[in-house]
Design a protein around this nucleic acid. Structure first.
Lengths: 153, 153
DNA sequence: CCTATGTCAGCACGACTGATATTC
DNA sequence: CGAATATCAGTCGTGCTGACATAG
């Protein structure tokens, strides 16, 4: 693929992603949980994660993660705990209510998505599945490239 | 693909999209234009579009589009004009400065994306290209399914 | 008179930076 | 004492609903 084709593909992909963002936002309305909140619930299964790790996984700064965790805590879906090995750390764990809420939200959102898959031919579904590893790599690469701007500048 | 495989694919795809959202946000920092602002600039080439159409294309409500247009207008990148055929309508057109800003932002963002493509093997790039039509169909389908909730309820 | 279009006002959410405890 | 972890305070961007003026 030459450079011009790559640039075209970049443009096409950007456009598609933008629309997907809005669609993703619409999915939020289906459940009471935002995409971000559900992501946190999904990553902090019972074993628990530190706030900093949550922020890193989400791709946001630590204070943003703190606020999300606070919101989930107020809703009774997670609990904050200390790390015996490091008193600075805060470990976030899911409560039983959080387990239930996460399972329900995942089920509903997946159902919506599966319904949307109904618009696709079998080979299109296969194409989608085949593209996921590439998309993940792009996500990683762009995340790494832009995450530490201030450290460079 | 059976139902279980579809549900798994739905989950995988949702996760990938969520990460892409954060990546997209990071791209905003590269230029002075947000993804939304650039989308508007790209769709209102010289001929001009009505605010309602912009909202529809973006997948947002009209007041949200109004605000974005106002912001772009204050920045001197678009101009509001009237429609001779319908005095209620407001037609948004790009200014020469808007042309330049859009071209620059597109160039920068595409360059970033092409750089990220460097992480991919040729067959992965091909897989990405092959999946775009499917993703577009999913976007349309989910948009249609969730856009008019209130009219049904 | 009713509908359509756009704007305004007010609200909510979620990100960010900068400043601060607290602990390693 | 300097670095790391999390939180708090304040700000900004961007979406939404509801109310409104104006025009078809």
């Amino acid at each position: 693929m030459n450079h011009q084709e790559l640039a075209y593909l970049a443009d096409r992909y950007r456009t598609t992603l933008r629309l997907a963002v809005y669609v993703s936002r619409r999915l939020d309305g289906v459940t009471g949980l935002s995409t971000t909140a559900l992501s946190i619930l999904n990553m902090v299964a019972r074993e628990g994660l530190r706030v900093g790790v949550i922020a890193e996984n989400l791709g946001v700064r630590v204070p943003s993660a703190t606020e999300q965790v606070g919101r989930l805590e107020r809703a009774g879906l997670v609990a904050r705990g200390g790390d015996p090995a490091d008193a600075r750390a805060v470990v976030v764990r899911r409560t039983p209510a959080g387990d239930a809420a996460a399972a329900d939200a995942n089920r509903r959102r997946n159902a919506r998505m599966v319904d949307a898959f109904g618009a696709l031919a079998p080979e299109e579904l296969e194409a989608l599945r085949a593209a996921l590893p590439a998309m993940d790599k792009i996500n990683e690469r762009l995340h790494a490239a832009t995450n530490h701007k201030e450290h460079i500048a």
